[in-house]
Amino acid sequence: MLWKNGRRSDNVEDQRASGPRPSGRGGLVGGGIGTIVLALVALYFGVAPSVVLNQVAQQQTQQSTQQAPAALTAKDQQDKEFLSVVLADTEDTWGALFQQAGRQYVDPKLVLFSGAVQSACGYAQAATGPFYCPADQKLYLDIQFFRELQQRLGAKGDFAEAYVIAHEVGHHVQNLLGVESKVRDAMQRSSPARANALLVRLELQADCYAGVWAYHAQNERKVLEPGDVEEAINAAEAVGDDRLQKQAQGYVVPDSFTHGTSAQRARWFQTGFASGRPQVCDTFNASQL
């Protein structure tokens, strides 16, 4: 991705130098692509992957940590610069699209943290994975997640990382449009299987919105390099529920899917990228995902 000359966003909050700050009561944070780490949680904490898969919808228990904050390295600063440019590019894309639709886009903030973080949605650890909190309109990310994404799941390249941010921004778009709250309300009135099915459609729409951003990033600002789209598609496929479950426990349980299969995630990203129109991302009325 050609990012070094891009505009930097002012909406990045870097909390990494302060280290973990456990406080308040723990809870599962809504939204985001947290189940990417279903297999990674086991690697972090030595937990059996099957146990992790069964507990993904349960609350996380707050754990006290007394870690001295680590000094930020030059690589840490470069990561922040890159993510700031990606965030700014999503701001430009969605700001223009909302304006065209007669709406006003409110920029989200990106919080970089290390180890653990307190959000308006509750306390979360790095193992939660990147997530979006509708209550404070912030994206949360421990950059170490990208290392695991590359090393454990084979999703390499800077545009794979950009896809992750764009997906979380997609959840912010859903929040601004009122989609997120409607889906959450419907999930509360549904059976577990139906609730998971609704969540899959919510996540696939965020993948499609990531593709919409990528379309405009390329067509209006020419930031993509050869292979970038393939990096994003590879990342989308790497975090499909079927692939993660197969890797973690050797078999898949479709009724427990929360984000969609590898093929579905890649297809919806490509759908958004092919047209650049948010209207094509209506996963809730799609007869086939």
Rank of each mutant, 00 (worst) to 15 (best):
P254A: 14
A274N: 11
F269L: 11
A266H: 04
A248M: 13
S256N: 02
R267L: 15
G260P: 01
Q249N: 05
Q270A: 07
T271I: 11
V253F: 05
F273D: 11
A248W: 00
G260L: 10
D255P: 00
A248N: 03
T258W: 01
S256H: 00
D255S: 06
D255V: 12
Y251M: 01
P254I: 11
G260D: 10
G250S: 02
V252Y: 00
G272H: 06
S262M: 11
H259R: 02
G250F: 13
V252K: 06
A274Q: 11
Y251S: 03
A263E: 15
H259D: 11
H259W: 08
S262F: 12
S275K: 13
Q249C: 02
G272T: 13
Q270V: 01
D255K: 15
T271K: 11
D255T: 06
T258L: 11
S262I: 07
S275T: 14
Q264A: 09
F269A: 00
S262V: 09
T258K: 03
R277A: 04
R277T: 05
W268G: 02
A274R: 12
S262Q: 12
R277I: 02
P254L: 15
R265V: 00
G272W: 07
A263T: 11
S262H: 10
F269M: 02
G250K: 10
Q264C: 09
V253D: 15
G276W: 09
Q270P: 02
A274T: 06
A274Y: 10
A274S: 15
W268S: 03
F257E: 02
G276K: 04
Q249V: 12
W268R: 08
H259Y: 12
A274C: 08
T271R: 05
Q249L: 14
A263P: 00
S275F: 11
T261C: 03
T258C: 11
S256Q: 06
A266K: 10
R277P: 02
G276D: 10
R267D: 10
Q249M: 08
V252A: 14
W268Q: 04
G276H: 06
H259L: 14
G272C: 10
Q249D: 06
T261E: 09
F273A: 05
S275R: 11
